[in-house]
């Protein structure tokens, strides 16, 4: 039990991202409303963004900017003092991708709503079957 709690606390960022990811996945599979599914999809993507951001963090690390003070260039740069900026930069791209995906999904949702006047998947499917 003690080991389990320790694993839970020490790696809490992973637990958070997995929980969020499962919430998103659940919404995408179980929800009937198309917009709720889109929201679930967005939670799913955000979970992975949080995962990436959390792996760049370092205890006691500072911003990865080398200060331009007097004689600063002669200082030795210790990589251990700085957090890793790369995962954060990658996530800027991933955020753009997720915004674009959200935009396309909502646009498709509008097309579907204009055609069927509902966003409930079962009602749309029954309308398709009636024809």
């Amino acid at each position: 039990m003690g080991d389990f709690i320790q694993a839970l606390v020490a790696k809490y960022n992973y637990w958070i991202y997995i929980t969020l990811m499962m919430i998103g996945l659940y919404a995408m599979i179980a929800k009937n409303n198309l917009i709720k599914k889109i929201v679930g999809m967005n939670i799913f993507q955000t979970a992975i963004i949080l995962f990436y951001v959390s792996i760049g963090v370092k205890k006691g690390g500072t911003l990865p900017i080398i200060e331009h003070g007097h004689g600063a260039h002669s200082h030795v740069v210790h990589a251990v003092d700085y957090i890793n900026p790369l995962p954060h930069v990658l996530m800027l791209t991933a955020i753009v991708v997720s915004v674009a995906t959200l935009g396309v999904a909502l646009a498709l949702g509008i097309r579907i709503y204009n055609r069927y006047h509902t966003l409930e998947e079962d009602e749309i499917l029954s309308q398709i079957r009636e024809k």
Binding site: L25, M28, A105, I112, I128
Partner: peptide, 30 residues
């Protein structure tokens, strides 16, 4: 007009899950 947007949206849900899984795997490799 009747069927394509819904088919495309379903593809989008699945496609996003697929791409996110790939991204997650790359994260672990990183």
């Amino acid at each position: 007009k009747d069927r394509a947007p819904l088919a495309s949206l379903n593809y989008l849900y699945m496609g996003t899950i697929g791409a996110c899984f790939y991204l997650l795997g790359v994260g672990y490799l990183y």
